[in-house]
């Protein structure tokens, strides 16, 4: 009476992950592996910046103005100190400022994408599952927002939020305002994709089976549909992370983002470009290369993920 034995081995989630086609294609894609390595190294060094960085560039006590404008790998003419990537006008070690700047950039990027993701998934699930007027309102709002460049939307939100924050909190709140602005400008993609996937999933018979036994719409959306719409979300989240890091850098470069007391990569590039023509190229070049490497490898990783997951999103 029993069906043919498919080998019996209860599998753990880890085993399934290692055995999956996704991991297999990953191991066969050099681009994906290199990008993943770059991203991991950069993230690791950003998280452990206080341990890795030779100096804390934001502790005035550790700074020596005499070290200003030291070129990379060259002993300073006055103090004899040598810096891996040189120093800026105030004698801060560029290598350390990059590590600390990357912390801000990554934190803002990840938090903004997370915020956009939560907002987008919620609105996408609701509009896809509930339909009707709710859907019309949410998706038309999304369409309208898409007609403006997202950087403009972010600047607008940033401006408004800054305006309503009391002056004494402004610098403190700047990072959170930045996260809010980038996140709000980026939820639309998540909502659209999740809505599309929800429309497909909600007509599948396992959802009908759940409706049949009287589960509430909330439970069906969270327990049944959400786990099945996450793979496309993962792709978008990765690509959005690259965009969010660039958006943050753009805003900071334009001077409306991270405050000078907490410089991100974008702030460093803005500061650096002032010295480019006076010959101190390293102040600009190294933060720029870091930003490029970070954004590019996250983006490549996202591209690979999209291609790898695509055959199963048919």
């Amino acid at each position: 009476m029993s069906d043919f034995p498919i080998p019996v081995k209860p599998q753990s989630r880890l085993r399934i992950a290692l055995d999956s086609d996704l991991f297999y294609t990953f191991r066969r894609s050099p681009v994906a592996m290199v990008s993943a390595a770059v991203v991991l190294v950069l993230m690791f060094s950003a998280i452990f910046a206080p341990l890795i960085a030779p100096t804390n560039p934001f502790n005035p006590a550790s700074l020596n103005l005499m070290n200003g404008f030291t070129p990379p790998m060259t002993p300073n003419a006055f103090t004899g100190d040598s810096f891996l990537l040189g120093t800026d006008d105030q004698g801060r070690d560029v290598f350390s400022t990059i590590l600390y700047g990357m912390r801000i950039s990554l934190f803002v990027g990840v938090a903004a994408v997370f915020f956009a993701m939560v907002l987008g998934i919620t609105l996408g699930l609701i509009s896809g599952y509930v339909g009707g007027w709710t859907e019309t309102i949410i998706m038309r709002t999304a369409d309208v927002q898409l007609t403006f460049p997202s950087i403009l939307v972010a600047m607008l939100i940033f401006g408004i939020a800054k305006g309503v924050t009391p002056v004494e909190y402004r610098d403190q709140m700047a990072i959170w305002v930045l996260i809010l602005a980038i996140g709000l400008s980026d939820w639309v993609q998540f909502a659209r994709v999740v809505r599309g996937a929800t429309l497909v999933e909600k007509n599948k018979e396992y959802v009908q089976a759940a409706r049949l036994i009287g589960r509430t719409p909330g439970a069906i959306m969270l327990r049944h549909i959400l786990p099945n719409v996450l793979s496309p979300v993962l792709v978008i989240a990765t690509i959005s992370l690259a965009l969010a890091i660039i958006a943050e850098a753009t805003l900071s470069f334009l001077g409306v983002g991270a405050p000078p007391t907490q410089p991100s990569l974008g702030t460093l590039i803005r500061i650096g470009q002032g010295f480019l023509f006076s010959g101190e190229w390293w102040i600009l070049l190294f933060p720029a290369i870091t930003l490029l490497a970070l954004a590019l490898s996250v983006n490549l990783l996202g591209d690979w993920l999209r291609d790898a997951l695509n055959p199963r999103l048919r």
Binding site: E205, Y206, Q208, A209, I213, G214, N228
Partner: peptide, 23 residues
Amino acid sequence: KIDAIRSDIQMIFQDPYASLNPR
């Protein structure tokens, strides 16, 4: 009463691939 009836009625669907939540 609705709840009592709901547990008295069940359904088996056509497509065995779509009627089980893959996750």
